[in-house]
Design a protein around this nucleic acid. Structure first.
Lengths: 238, 238
DNA sequence: CGGGTGATTGAACTGCTTCAAAACATGTGG
DNA sequence: CCACATGTTTTGAAGCAGTTCAATCACCCG
């Protein structure tokens, strides 16, 4: 696996949704500068506070981006990025030099394309189609983040977990992450995840076997997830 | 007050931090297209779900951008934008057509410069310096938002209120917004704001007289706000 | 002076947190 | 193949912050 491989880099760049709308000619200069890097599970891409001089584009595997809060007692996973997704996009392009979050590889062969920040900025800002695509991607990301956090603030764990199950376990037997990872994603602690999953199981909403789930009662889960946008207890009729 | 006034528009545009780095020549075409609009307190700029074909730049007064959650039982203020700040920036530039939030004027003479979205997009994407400045501004905004919401999720009301007081009531007698507005900003309900303010008063941390506050014990408030980043109850030694 | 808005207080309740311990799984070395 | 050590999941139980409903109080305005 050659660290520099312009052809593969160009292929990856042109398939990434962030750079959609750019012509191969626009991406060529970036591909020439990119190098591939392979990580093992748990390996650190960068830490919060690091200077950000590189942009990462996931090629295979996945990367977890998270922040540590509560004086180190708690982790909040911001996103988990899979293939063709950008890591550190906002930080690098927005010029926020110290990285605002940590990033580690989640799977054992995780390969990322590393692009020098300065070159990316220059290319992006100078190419209208690229600038538009990147801004759109950042905006989309921001909207997701906003929705996620709004859910964290205003809806209860049951709703968030139901939503998670609907989104990720829709396809039959689905392997759950560990309770700790789920907790970091949902903004709570492993104990609560365990309790809520048990509750759903007892209600017959899901089938649980080891770390595999299967959704049994989709309509009820949807009701719990609050299709209307999280009415919570305000919804109970009286 | 003439609705169209290219000279004033240009002046405003070139002083706005979002467009910093652009030459007057770059901004000229936008200024020519802008129209001013004056609003009264409570007047709606746009509602969540509206098609966003206009970008707003606050000229005077202030605009509150907020979302309605919990099935309409609760409001969360995302930002309050003062002069030279952009409203609807992410939505318009990112191409998320239906507005993701509501926006209303907070003060009675609030004047905004309205710019047609399509023209702004074209100008921004086609001008490298502008694209860079705008992306940086959006990224900064996103970082603020992230910090705000993270605080909402992981720190307690006392911490958030203390932080608010330190930030906004630093200068002597400071006029507080109504408890409802404060609640929308802090992500809670008016009752809790009242209770916490009362508690701070009883502890001798602040002086309260009508809607005016004065910080009496700054060090203690800073301790409560959790300088270290919100350790919450995890901090108490044992 | 009455009426309406916002502020305050009371009280019951819910969901989350935290600490702690038990149950279970998984891998290691004897 | 068992015994042990380690880590994760599950369950228990006490406590607290925030929510909600509701009632009272203070103030401003005409």
């Amino acid at each position: 696996m050659n660290p520099a491989d312009p052809a593969r880099a160009l292929e990856l760049l042109s398939r990434s949704p962030v750079f959609r709308g750019a012509s191969p000619a626009d991406l060529q200069p970036l591909a020439a500068l990119g190098t591939f890097r392979t990580l093992r599970r748990g390996e650190v891409l960068f830490r919060a506070g690091d200077a950000l001089d590189t942009l990462f584009l996931v090629s295979s595997g996945s990367v977890r981006v998270y922040r540590v809060v509560r004086g180190g007692t708690r982790e909040l996973t911001l996103h988990v990025e899979g293939p063709r997704q950008l890591v550190a996009g906002v930080g690098v392009l927005g010029g926020s030099d110290p990285a605002p979050a940590h990033a580690v590889a989640l799977q054992t062969p995780t390969e990322v394309l590393c692009l020098p920040a300065a070159a990316v900025r220059e290319q992006v800002f100078g190419t209208p189609a690229l600038a538009a695509a990147v801004i759109a991607a950042l905006a989309r990301r921001q909207a997701e983040l906003l929705a996620r956090l709004e859910g964290l603030v205003f809806s209860e764990l049951g709703e968030r977990l139901a939503a998670y199950l609907l989104e990720h376990a829709a396809d039959d037997p689905h392997a759950l992450p560990t309770n700790s990872d789920l907790a970091a994603l949902l903004g709570t602690v492993p104990e609560l995840v365990s309790r809520k999953l048990g509750e759903f199981y007892r209600l017959g909403l899901i089938q649980l076997e080891r770390r595999r789930v299967r959704v049994l009662d989709r309509p009820e889960l949807e009701r719990l997830a609050g299709r209307t946008g999280g009415e919570g207890r305000a919804s109970d009729p009286r």
